[in-house]
């Protein structure tokens, strides 16, 4: 069952859960991110649109991801991220970082950072910046597992 495995890659790839919670159907951006993360050698888990914060946490646990990356363009970011971070704490989840992105006003970014949601990149951010950030957070998360 091995059929010639190439050892070039496949060394502990970063696992990322990409999600768009709440009612937000703008999925073009998330496909671009999925592709960029995949091409950066990551394993991207995409469960489709509209999962609730509960389902994000359940999925992240089953899939043992390093990073949860949430994209929000509908203004619900504060509510969603609050709920998500509370749930993660309640379930005593360790070793999973949360990063955000989408349309997030500057004044909200600091508040999000405070509860542990980093990144919070807006449209036009170079993909390489986002990828580097995910890599950094994934490394931190893994050291806490």
């Amino acid at each position: 069952m091995e059929n010639g495995k190439s050892l070039k890659f496949y060394k502990k790839p970063i696992r990322v859960l990409l999600a768009k919670p709440a009612i937000d159907g703008h999925d073009r951006g998330i496909y671009i991110l999925a592709r960029a993360f995949r091409d950066a050698g990551m394993e991207v888990i995409y469960p489709g649109l509209l999962p609730t914060p509960e389902s994000i946490v359940n999925t992240a646990i089953d899939e043992d991801v390093d990073v949860i990356a949430i994209s929000l363009l509908n203004g619900a970011h504060m509510a969603v991220f609050h709920k998500l971070m509370t749930l993660l704490k309640k379930r005593k989840v360790k070793g999973i970082a949360v990063v955000g992105g989408g349309i997030i006003p500057d004044e909200d970014k600091a508040k999000l950072e405070k509860i542990g949601v980093s990144g919070n990149y807006g449209p036009g951010t170079p993909l390489s910046v986002i990828i580097e950030h995910i890599k950094k957070r994934a490394e931190e998360a893994r050291s806490e597992k």
Binding site: R38, D39, E43, Y46
Partner: peptide, 18 residues
């Protein structure tokens, strides 16, 4: 499948099951 070029992959089977 994983990519033979980068080793990355898009794991999309959940979409139909979520």
């Amino acid at each position: 499948a994983s990519s033979p070029f980068t080793g990355g992959s898009f794991l999309g089977n959940r979409i139909r099951m979520q």
